[in-house]
């Protein structure tokens, strides 16, 4: 099993519903977010292109945050989901410094927090909160090892990219182009 997310930049309108949904679902404290929206414009007027992305932790397969964690608080869960065990985290922030995507932050309660791929929902057979709410159906979550999953199909049929692959982390959030 290998969980991953694909975000369709053609569908996404950058409404940030995924951000609010995450905040509500996961009780993300004020002043923090686990996901966010980036708009990238290329070209000059009037020859323009706009790419809109909903970004979050990439649940890297070769995650520096896991590697540099001294307590194993940051670890891989089923399906390659990268999680932080709150009761093992000492708050040394090594993982924050090590994440090239700046996906992590210190929760006001002291431990480090970030996107969990909503594993608590996934385990109940539901979709992550952000995926479920997206009005344009821009997000796909699923198992890459299942060749028939929607995400496997999307990655077979569509062009896609990952963010800063040169950072060498093997990210598992894909952007459909």
């Amino acid at each position: 099993m290998r969980y991953a997310m694909a975000i369709d930049t053609k569908r996404c309108v950058g409404c940030a519903d995924c951000v609010v949904a995450c905040q509500r679902e996961n009780n993300v404290p004020e002043g923090f977010c686990r996901d966010w929206i980036v708009e990238e414009t290329t070209g000059t007027f009037p020859e323009l292109q706009l790419e809109i992305r909903s970004e979050r932790c990439n649940h890297c397969a070769d995650a520096p945050c896991v590697r540099c964690c001294p307590t194993e608080a940051s670890h891989y869960e089923e399906g390659g989901v990268v999680l932080v065990d709150h009761d093992s985290c000492i708050g040394c922030k090594a993982c924050i410094a090590s994440c090239p995507y700046d996906a992590r932050f210190v929760h006001p309660e002291g431990y480090v927090d970030k996107c969990t791929f909503c594993i608590h929902r996934v385990r109940e057979g539901k979709q992550p909160a952000c995926v479920e709410v997206c009005p344009t159906h821009a997000m796909i979550f699923g198992d890459l090892d299942d060749k028939n999953s929607e995400i496997s199909k999307a990655l077979r049929t569509r062009k896609y990219k990952t963010l800063i692959p040169e950072a060498g982390t093997d990210p598992h959030v894909f952007y459909l182009l």
Binding site: C15, D17, V20, R24, E25, V133, P135
Partner: peptide, 25 residues
């Protein structure tokens, strides 16, 4: 209070609220 989720039977939202509705709480 936790969250507001669209009603799948509703043709205005098709079960998915917009960000403002989700943040309506």
């Amino acid at each position: 209070p936790w969250k507001i989720i669209g009603n799948p039977d509703d043709t205005h939202s098709n079960g998915r609220f917009c960000p403002r509705g989700t943040g309506g709480i």
